[in-house]
Amino acid sequence: MQTKVENNKAWFLVLPVFIIVAFSAIIPLMTVVNYSVQDIFDQNTSYFVGAEWFKQVMLDSRLHDALIRQFLFSLTILLIEIPLGIGVALMMPTKGKSASLCLILVAIPLLIPWNVVGTIWQIFGREDIGLFGAFMSTIGVDYNYASDPFDAWATVVLMDVWHWTPLVALLCYSGLRAIPEVYYQAARIDQASRWAVFRYIQLPKLTNVLIIGVLLRFMDSFMIYTEPFVLTGGGPGSSTTFLSQALVQQAIGQFDLGPAAAFSLVYFLIILLVCWVFYTTIMNMQKDK
């Protein structure tokens, strides 16, 4: 890694990005901050209420539940998707036409609009017209994602695993391709077992991409909205209502601008905190290299 040249004129190159992201991030965020400290009745009537909404949001049990559900969901899918993704990446062919074909086929779920993902599983899981639902009832499992909270949860998790494991797999696949062939040759000479090859050659080389993978999957699962919204509508009851959906319900559904804004900020801060931890880890790892 060469050292970079110090040059403050580089700011001119960054300026366009700064302007466009400022327009679509800072201005809206300021609006949110503004709302979060006011009680708004209509366009011209509003009162300054200070930290009132924040207090209310922090004590709101619905939001606590949504937050717990959110963490539980993110952890569950990470625990399933990361090992499964590594496994799939290890199985993927490395050379020739079949490698390209596998790449394209594996990537397909990532290219489907999120509401269509919801629709696919909505259909697939139904007992009357869906293969999965019909299969479950054939083997004698009482399965109905629309009325049973556990089934709804399982279906949302299954959908997310189906949808996003390919991302982890592709990440690991590109990480595996970056390992020089000589490493494997050395392992063969040492007659290393398959497990030893994985544990001492492949896994260490995968650390970098796995961190990116965990980061992306954590963040994206933390703001999941469309798929469960289409699949279960957040129900039955509120068993699959995650943070984003709780927020949208409050902001658009009930039009409680103040509390919704305060909620947004708390939500955003949680994400920012986790994001910062990951970012520092990645940057430190690159420095160590």
Binding site: P28, V32, M219, Y225, L243, S244, L247, I271, C275, W276
Partner: peptide, 13 residues
């Protein structure tokens, strides 16, 4: 951090 911002936060603004 903007890549990580939940779109739901920015919906109304």
């Amino acid at each position: 951090s903007n890549r990580m911002a939940p779109p739901a936060v920015f919906l109304l603004p």
